[in-house]
Design a protein around this nucleic acid. Sequence first.
DNA 1: TGGCGTGATGTAAGCGCTTTCATTTAGGCG
DNA 2: CGCCTAAATGAAAGCGCTTACATCACGCCA
Lengths: 341, 341
Amino acid sequence: MSEKTVHATVDDVAALAGVSTATVSRCLNAPDRVVPATREKVMEAIRALNYSPNFGARALASRRTGIIGAVIPTLENAVFAHGIDAFERSLSPGKFALLVASCGYDPEREKQQIEALVARGADGLLLVGFDRDPAIYEWLAIRKVPYVLAWACGDSHPYAGFDNVAGMAAMVRMVLDLGHRNVAMISGLTQGNDRARGRLEGARDLLAGEGLAFRGVAEVPYGLESGARAFAELMADRSITAVICGNDVLAAGALRAAHRMGLRVPRDVTITGFDDIDIASITFPELTTVRVPHTRMGEQAAALLQQLIEGKRGESVLLPTEIVARGTHAPPTARRRFAKA
Amino acid sequence: MSEKTVHATVDDVAALAGVSTATVSRCLNAPDRVVPATREKVMEAIRALNYSPNFGARALASRRTGIIGAVIPTLENAVFAHGIDAFERSLSPGKFALLVASCGYDPEREKQQIEALVARGADGLLLVGFDRDPAIYEWLAIRKVPYVLAWACGDSHPYAGFDNVAGMAAMVRMVLDLGHRNVAMISGLTQGNDRARGRLEGARDLLAGEGLAFRGVAEVPYGLESGARAFAELMADRSITAVICGNDVLAAGALRAAHRMGLRVPRDVTITGFDDIDIASITFPELTTVRVPHTRMGEQAAALLQQLIEGKRGESVLLPTEIVARGTHAPPTARRRFAKA
DNA sequence: TGGCGTGATGTAAGCGCTTTCATTTAGGCG
DNA sequence: CGCCTAAATGAAAGCGCTTACATCACGCCA
């Protein structure tokens, strides 16, 4: 196609340094298997020729690319952006690089992306959640591609994540302890999303344990508006005194809707979030939520995956979640007044 | 190292289909150069063997990887997360994949990351801003690696971005038109960051054009707290009636600080942001800011870069910015009262 | 002093695919 | 009906690197 600048190759370097290509290769891949004097000669030749190894050739010969793939729903969700950022930063520099692909919460697309990343030579994969077609796991097993799951936990696969069920249960526990009995939930879409499902179930089960049930549940797409709308609809039931949200964005939307409806938070209604992303401390009042260690999770996931890729066995890591009590929760008040909806 | 499952190779497919490897290769890379009947045979063999081409071999032989690299400061900044998300989604699926690397606003690290991505065979690069060591541009030119710059504009390189200077100037214009004369600015760090610098200069120049100057300028790192602290310090000057912020996060921090200081926004002080990320519509009151079309920018950048990679010539795209007038601006009020700082 | 072990280096065989060039095949036209 | 052209296919030469194995040099111990 286009003529290329003549790049130096191993042969050029070997010739200039007066050694064999094998030695050059060793200098780059296992420096301690070469005597310092030789190594220095080679390095100098490399510098002189401005040599840099050809990626394809290296991948072909060594059967490794040093590329790690990650498939996430979307970077627009700060949760994933932060996790991926930390993950990338924790990859051994020079050794691994990160190929990201998004699937927009679509399982079919996720499958394609996984295949695409593996086809591109990914040495390992970071995936979100456990919930996917078993065929994918089998395929990865056959292809011997190591992977780590994040943002969730379980016992069937290696993971670095946290317990969505328990995290949400703890939050609902707190809300009940405040005295609330008429609770509603705004959940993210649970279809093909075990994180959202876990949170919903965690809340539901805890209520059930107290002989209670939700006064209302809305399952809506991710988004501020989405949360706002759901909140408005839910609050038609005037008995509701607390609204549990599946994530902070939904909660922020609900909060905004509450303002617009003339409801005072937390006096008139308690609203809780999940994730503790930036926006949770920007809302007014600041959001009571469940903190998830996204950054540490990303780091741990990177560490674990790199171990697996190098053939070592690594332990899954379960990170703790924690309730961050800020300004959107309070005991229920009997007296409630509505402005226009 | 580890024994691998025997993967089918071109030879296997060729043998099963009863054709040559050249034909198999053509079926995959230029289907129309093969007669339908043959193609069908080959495709069936591929399916039967569950064949998928070896990435390294392909890269080696074709001198292309289908990998595009992007180096951004950090995904923690929603601006980049959204842009990159859109960029990735706009890459021709199956044809290109995205390798991301972050550099944490460090020019030296950016350089390393660029080299790392090119070493990993990136066919093209997406970079943020124009401002970098000329040696890098030369190096890319020698290596014949096409690139597109984003989040800024200029005339020395291909880009898909917007005009930080003009965007900020427009905002300051509006603030002046409201009657403000005592204006301060909270800028992001301008060191090695032409976007921040452009915004600062855009504001400064516009003021100068009116014979005015800032009553105060704080240059601080990205972050909520950072903005809050800067705001508190700046407001020690009681004459200030408007604080222009270099981005929404800084503005949100300022806004929070204002609340805590007992200042009412916009009555007591006008605060403006830049970017129009999610948080801008979550603050209370909602933030008046400059909207930047991050998503469209990502898409355009992807389109442009793909063109360049395929050897076509592409035009840079300059996207318009737009003032989003929400709730944090108002004419200055003489009467101002402070609570505790 | 000589055999031998040890570590450094060289030799060369691929890795699996693309692509150039040659060859075959199928038509089209006189 | 045969020759010429163009399209389809095949043969084979790399692409640049890694790595198993061979070789070599050296120093140690007996």
